[in-house]
Amino acid sequence: MLLDLTAEDKHALENIASKLTTLKKQRRNLIPILQMIQKELDYLPRESLKMVAEHLEIPESEVYGVATFYNQFRFHPPGKHRIKVCLGTACHVRAGDIILENFERKLEISEGETTPDREFSIERAACVGCCALAPVAIIGETVHAHMAPSKVEGLILRIAIEKEMAEREKQKNESGQE
């Protein structure tokens, strides 16, 4: 599934293009450059790989080959709410895969994908360092400990409700200003 670039992304790409010109055309900069792009955009759009290839004067396939080799790089834009389910050893032993499956079922996407409205994305994570609280899931920056399948729905619902409330608040403010 290829999602179109948003206006914001396009703007960010232009920024990156100008940043690239300040970086040396050295092969050793390839991974740091990809990391820089991902930091800005949260993913590597195809267009960006082409830009990098042109800048470093190496084939685009080379850039793609390196980018796909490493787990860090993603090729789909993540959702506004990034869900990471820990599948480290401790979380696995405590059924982290069932938690992952529940998120996938509820959101109707697979691990590594983003919902079409770009609200949610699901990723797997290696140990996040709180194995004593296993299984854990991380949404945005918040770690949710001792996850259970029944908590999945609640978490997603809560985000939906928060969004609705924020929108209502916004509408209220806007109408109040008029």
């Binding site: 092969r27 390839l30 991974i31 080959g65 080799f69 490493y70 787990n71 790089f73």
Partner: peptide, 24 residues
């Protein structure tokens, strides 16, 4: 240097390759 998350890059020669900007 920030490694990009490949288990094999813990192996020393792969680690070196990845710093050089190649597949590890």
């Amino acid at each position: 240097f920030q490694g990009s998350g490949a288990f094999v890059c813990g192996e020393e020669t792969a680690l070196i390759r990845s710093i050089e900007g190649y597949r590890g």
